[in-house]
């Protein structure tokens, strides 16, 4: 391929597939979350907090956030590729979003492992 765009979609199956895999992970987690919510003995702040401090729930919730951030990366990048045409502006926008999402992942870890 001759006219590759540096900030393009990397011309591959990988991100397309990742979007679907992360979507499936989030959909399964959503069902798992709702089931857990209905299984709570009472709907209180303590019960809500205790739900997330359970070992498996904490891990699953962290995976959900990671899947969400990766999913958001592909989705937002696709939106930028549709509407932002100048390569320089697009590169800056992509970088800002990528770093933001990495920061959010750290934030999510801090929230969950503080419990």
């Amino acid at each position: 391929m001759q006219n590759r765009i540096v900030v393009g979609a990397h011309y591959g199956l990988r991100d397309w597939l990742a979007q679907r895999v992360t979507a499936t992970v989030m959909a399964l987690y959503t069902v798992f979350f709702v089931v857990n919510l209905f299984c709570l003995p009472e709907f209180s702040a303590e019960a809500w907090r205790a739900m997330f401090s359970g070992g498996f729930m904490r891990f699953a919730t962290f995976l959900f956030w990671l899947a969400l951030f990766f999913h958001a990366w592909v989705g937002v990048r696709d939106i930028f590729m549709d509407y932002i045409k100048p390569v320089g502006v697009r590169l800056v926008a992509h970088s800002v979003v990528a770093f933001l999402l990495i920061g959010y992942a750290g934030w999510a870890a801090q929230i969950l492992w503080r419990l």
Binding site: A45, W48, R49, S53, A72, G75, V76, W107, I111, L115
Partner: peptide, 15 residues
């Protein structure tokens, strides 16, 4: 995506 910081803050505060 735009409201992610608010949602993370809310989630963090709730637990």
């Amino acid at each position: 995506f735009l409201m992610l910081p608010a949602l993370l803050w809310l989630f963090g505060s709730s637990v």
